[in-house]
């Protein structure tokens, strides 16, 4: 049954009361590493909680293979989930934490112990196994959650910001683990708010912003889409047609639209800096009276800037 195992979302939306968590997401997530990337509040955790049944969709349907995610008794034999929540049951050591989780699967204590030790050693926590989780560092807590998620060798591994709080060495180790899981034919779904942190390891990337999936595909396609996304600038001024003809002469201008009231225009360009220079020159040297200059689709642009790491490049 694992031959074509995949996570399938069909028109999935989640609202928290009035607040949008994710909106109309349809996708199929197959084997290999898939990264969910977007800034805080993008809806990554909501989507992962939906995929694991911790929250229920307001609309739509989610299944793993042919099992609906509401069937938790079966789903979590297939799925391991490392959540973002940094709270732990009180008083337990790392070993008790992982072993206890495995006994809840119904395993004997001996079997649970064996698997817990294997998982803790895989994440490099064996030495600290008998210490209280409460005394762990952030990175160790992250790793013990990871051990818990993979201890029962699930076919599907879901990890919410697994690289957060890890030092570079631990990070490299975890990435190695994820790669090994993917190579073993498992579905690995991870989230991150930093694109370059995951792009080299991802087989595919899903970009999210404000609850929407804004781009999806192989890392090269997504990167290209991000880099080539034209930038829209809104300029309010007294001579929009003059500015329009000069803007058109620039190399990277895609489109110019003059507003109906003839008091402004909208320029799409792949070289925002060039456009800003032009506007400044016209104002300083040719007496263009400027009322306002602002990015039009601030949202998507700032997302892309943020993701490819050139924040403030246009200001």
């Amino acid at each position: 049954m694992t031959a074509d195992l995949a996570i399938r979302l069909t028109e999935v939306s989640k609202f928290y009361g009035e607040v949008l968590g994710v909106n109309r997401v349809s996708m199929t997530i197959g084997k290999g590493i898939t990264s969910l990337v977007g800034p805080n509040g993008a809806g990554k955790t909501t989507l992962l909680n939906l995929v694991t049944g911790l929250v229920r969709p307001t609309q739509g349907h989610i299944a793993i293979g042919d099992i609906p995610i509401t069937d938790s008794e079966v789903i979590f034999r297939l799925v391991g989930y490392c959540t973002q929540y940094d709270a732990f049951p009180r008083g337990l050591t790392g070993l008790e934490f992982v072993r206890g989780y495995l006994t809840v699967h119904g395993m004997t204590r001996a079997r649970a112990h064996e698997l817990a030790v294997a998982a803790l050693s895989a994440v490099g926590l064996l030495d600290a196994a008998d210490r209280k989780v409460a005394a762990y560092s952030k990175g160790m807590r992250q790793r013990v959650k990871l051990a818990q998620a993979m201890a029962h060798s699930p076919e599907v591994l879901v990890l919410d910001e697994p690289l957060n709080g890890l030092d570079p060495m631990a990070r490299a180790e975890v990435i190695e683990l994820l790669r090994a899981m993917a190579a073993a034919g498992k579905i690995v779904l991870i989230s991150s708010h930093i694109l370059h942190e995951v792009d080299v390891i991802s087989d595919s990337v899903i970009l999210m912003n404000h609850g929407y999936v804004v781009a999806e595909g192989g890392i090269h396609e997504v990167r290209q889409e991000v880099e080539e996304h034209p930038f829209q600038v809104l300029v309010r001024c007294d001579q929009p047609s003059r500015l329009a003809s000069r803007a058109f002469a620039l190399d990277h201008t895609v489109e110019v639209k003059i507003h109906a009231d003839a008091r402004g225009l909208l320029v799409s360009t792949k070289d925002a800096a060039g456009l800003y220079r032009l506007v400044n020159r016209l104002a300083a040297e040719e007496g263009l009276a400027i009322e306002a200059v602002q990015p039009a689709d601030d949202d998507v642009q700032s997302l892309y800037d943020y993701l490819i790491g050139n924040e403030g490049g246009h200001s």
Partner: peptide, 15 residues
């Protein structure tokens, strides 16, 4: 309140 309820729910177990 302590945000620990989900741990049991990550296992294949009926609530």
């Amino acid at each position: 309140l302590e945000k620990t309820f989900h741990y049991y729910l990550l296992a294949p177990v009926r609530r």
